[in-house]
């Protein structure tokens, strides 16, 4: 189980995270919700090994996790397929899915030869997700990936993410400051504030919106209310 064990981290004499214990249930989407500057990106970077804790340890992360950044982080001069193939090219290990299948899974099979500049913002994000599919890790970290996209695109990509997570049994750590996104995606949600993480909430949302749309949206609404109360509580 990926976890942070008594992790402290800071620099220039400022502690961003101190003595933090968090664990992330395998096969679940764990959402960390919090305002900008609360340390949620730092937590992801620690988990990914991009930062080293001053004390404590990151456990249960054996291979490099996939990381979906806030911007799509694509090489502008490389084609879509070369971007997707980048992790396996760099690490020399074949990914779980071929480049072709990964692009197929995000609905961009016809875009393999294009350059990132020829894609829309939403499509670039899909490429970034395809790149995660083409690694051979099960742990995928998302750092506010859809924050710059409009609401409708955002829901489409959230939907895609749910499908992929369920299909491939990903362990997802998803960082956002959107209450709705948190409530929609999270199997478990925790609120982050000043480098500390609250207890997990499990919204238990029935996501089959088609089957019982009204009930699901009411549950979503309730969950957002709970979360917003919790965020207010922590901010005070």
């Amino acid at each position: 189980m990926p976890s942070l064990d008594a992790v402290s981290f800071g620099y220039d004499g400022r502690m961003l995270i101190s003595d933090l214990h968090v664990d992330f249930t395998p096969g679940n989407i764990s959402v960390l919700l919090g305002p900008s500057g609360c340390g949620k990106s730092t937590l992801l970077r620690l988990l990914a090994g991009l930062e080293t804790p001053n004390s404590g340890a990151v456990k249960g992360v054996d291979t490099a996790p996939a990381f979906v950044f806030q911007d799509a982080a694509l090489l502008p001069w490389a084609s879509v397929e070369d971007n997707v193939a980048l992790p396996s090219r760099l690490s020399g290990e074949a990914g779980a899915l071929s480049t072709r299948d990964a692009l197929q899974a995000v609905g961009l099979a016809d875009y393999a030869k294009r350059k990132p500049a020829q894609l829309s913002g939403g499509q670039r994000m899909r490429v970034s997700i395809a790149r995660a599919l083409a690694t051979h890790t099960n742990l995928v970290l998302f750092d506010e990936p859809f924050a710059a996209l409009d609401e409708i695109l955002r829901f489409q990509l959230n939907d895609l993410l749910l499908d992929l997570q369920q299909h491939y049994g990903w362990t997802v750590v998803f960082v956002t400051h959107s209450l709705y996104e948190a409530a929609f995606l999270g199997d478990r949600i925790a609120v982050m504030h000043n480098g500390t993480v609250s207890d997990w909430t499990e919204p238990g949302l029935d996501r089959s919106l088609d089957a019982d749309a009204q009930r699901a949206s009411a549950a979503l609404h309730d969950c957002v209310k709970t979360l917003s109360a919790r965020m207010r509580g922590r901010a005070e």
């Binding site: 970077r45 090994g49 991009l50 490099a64 996790p65 982080a73 090489l75 992790p87 760099l90 690490s91």
Partner: peptide
């Protein structure tokens, strides 16, 4: 961010 990506994949 791209530097991070390259570091991530060693």
């Amino acid at each position: 961010t791209l530097v991070d990506l390259f570091r991530l994949y060693k």
